[in-house]
């Protein structure tokens, strides 16, 4: 059986080297290549079995989009599990390291094409520990989220959508100062120290996707 591999890597030289590395294999045909994830995501996936994606192409939405269409393997530029954890959470099948031999790389590509998870040897324990800690952090954040008032949660959701203070005030029909007060209170309750942290947390918890917050203009 022959598998079709797409490659997305920002490094032209590495992309060319990978193609040469893998071109000799009878089990593999090289499909589309791209230097950005958006270019790969915009392409045709019906014939692609696996997409090999550089760990530096990190847009989670694009990665989730590609992972929904084909099996994704992350090409890890360093022997760290943190890039892989984020990719696994949006549906990637696993990763391969830059130290992989051609045979190992091919074996992982074939495994991913069969729908099997591929975790580089030696990273499995660290990955498991990172996931456990991350799950605990998210659970703790969920508990803090439960401590927010309805209005604070609305402000949190709108911050997560990237709205500015004035825009939130317009949406909620309150003054900007009121929004700043809610933002300060919710950041204190959540233990975040900047709006950027608040935005990131809102997105991680899925609060930023809350639809139509601010429908009510009750005092607050």
């Amino acid at each position: 059986m022959t598998f079709c591999l797409a490659i997305a890597d920002e490094d032209n030289m590495l992309r060319s080297a990978l193609i040469e590395y893998l071109n000799d294999s009878d089990a593999l045909t090289i499909g589309p290549t791209a230097d950005t994830l958006s270019e790969l995501a915009a392409g045709e996936f019906s014939a692609i079995d696996v997409a090999l994606v550089s760990s530096r192409l990190t847009d989670p939405e694009l990665l989730a989009d590609v992972s929904a269409k084909t099996s994704v393997l992350i090409l890890l530029k360093q022997a760290s599990g943190s890039d892989l954890v984020s990719a696994l959470e949006v549906g990637a099948m696993g990763g391969v390291t830059m130290t992989s031999t051609p045979a190992a790389l091919l074996a992982n590509i074939e495994a991913a094409a069969r729908g099997e998870a591929c975790v580089p040897r030696g990273l499995l324990g660290g990955l498991l520990q990172r996931l456990i800690h991350r799950n605990r952090e998210l659970m703790a954040a969920d508990q803090k989220l439960a401590s927010l008032s309805r209005r604070e949660r609305e402000v949190f959701a709108l911050l997560g959508q990237g709205l500015e203070i004035d825009e939130i005030a317009n949406r909620l029909v309150v003054t900007p100062q009121t929004v700043r007060t809610h933002a300060y209170n919710l950041m204190t309750k959540l233990g975040v120290h900047s709006r950027l942290e608040a935005v990131r947390l809102a997105q991680e918890l899925g609060v930023a996707n809350d639809s139509q917050p601010g429908a009510s203009n009750a005092a607050g």
């Binding site: 696994l88 975790v119 498991l128 996931l131 456990i132 799950n135 605990r136």
Partner: peptide, 9 residues
């Protein structure tokens, strides 16, 4: 917790 994390991998 271990089972939950393994399920994500």
């Amino acid at each position: 917790e271990i089972i939950s994390a393994a399920g994500q991998l």
